[in-house]
């Protein structure tokens, strides 16, 4: 059921993310590309949020900005009561370290560290981390924890990446095309893990994808087009990843 933007903004005090007129322009003058054209958006905590849209619609750009990897050209991007636009590089690093977990399409594991060590990479610098074994168990990797990335399948590597992202008990988990490089069976397994993280840890999970079916498992679906939010849909029920059509 579609809801208007104004209704959502009444719940401001609950929002984990809020953007006001967020703009991102690449290049200058005639060659300028407007990746984000003044995005106003509110994301409540604890939800699974899916950002849908064709490539080039700006969804990854938004994710990168609110994930603290990039900066907007103009506008505000609030994480609770902190404006990310005002933060220095060092403050953004602290923000990522303390609050955010990332999962990428190409996993980005350290090839020279084993699965467990890749997770330990994060638990060493986090305040209140899980036990690395626990994080790996959560993603269903009990056994192959001493294997190097080169010895793991794509799905296994992605699950290690998720374990690495959740081991710090992040407030937010950002996933950029997490199933993009995976087959349907492995993809479903990965989505299940994300749902479980959302339920057990209470982390807000933001998934950027252009696989529309993924939207069925979300609490909230944000449709992107041409650098702006086209439509926000709240799902009353969330589908189980097993039921998702691939």
């Amino acid at each position: 059921m579609p809801v208007s933007q104004i209704e959502i903004s009444e719940n401001l005090h609950e929002a984990i993310y809020r953007t006001v007129g967020l703009t991102k322009v690449y290049g200058e003058g005639a060659a300028a590309v407007h990746a984000l054209r003044g995005v106003d958006l509110v994301i409540p905590p604890g939800e699974i949020v899916v950002l849908l849209g064709p490539s080039g619609s700006g969804k990854s750009t938004l994710l990168n900005i609110i994930g603290g990897l990039d900066r907007g050209t103009d506008g505000e991007a609030w994480f609770e009561d902190q404006n990310l636009a005002d933060m220095s590089d060092a403050e953004l690093t602290i923000y990522r370290r303390d609050n955010v977990g990332f999962v990428f399409q190409f996993y980005n594991l350290m090839p020279s560290l084993t699965a467990r060590e890749n997770v330990e990479l994060v638990t060493e610098i986090a305040d209140d981390p899980m036990d690395p074994g626990e994080a790996l168990a959560l993603v269903g990797l009990h056994e192959r924890t001493d294997h190097f990335p080169a010895q793991l399948s794509g799905g296994e590597q992605q699950r290690v990446a998720i374990a690495r992202a959740i081991a710090k008990r992040p407030r937010v988990l950002f996933c950029d095309e997490p199933t993009g490089a995976l087959d349907s069976k492995t993809g479903r397994a990965v989505l299940k893990v994300l749902k479980e993280v959302n339920e057990t840890l209470g982390s807000t999970v933001l998934i950027v994808t252009h696989a529309a079916a993924t939207a069925d498992m979300a609490h909230r679906v944000i449709h992107f087009a041409d650098g702006d939010v086209r439509e926000v849909i709240e799902n009353e029920t969330q589908a189980d990843p097993d039921e998702i059509e691939w």
Binding site: L109, M110, P111, S112, L113, E117, N118, E120, L121, E124, H147, F148, P149, A150, Q151, Q157
Partner: peptide, 26 residues
């Protein structure tokens, strides 16, 4: 690119592992 294979022989002793943090192991 497949991740470079680091699984080769000569794994570190666990004693040494305990002494080193992850970046040093890398």
């Amino acid at each position: 690119a497949a991740p470079a294979d680091y699984s080769g022989a000569g794994a570190f002793g666990s004693a040494l592992n305990r002494l080193l943090d992850q970046p040093s192991r890398m």
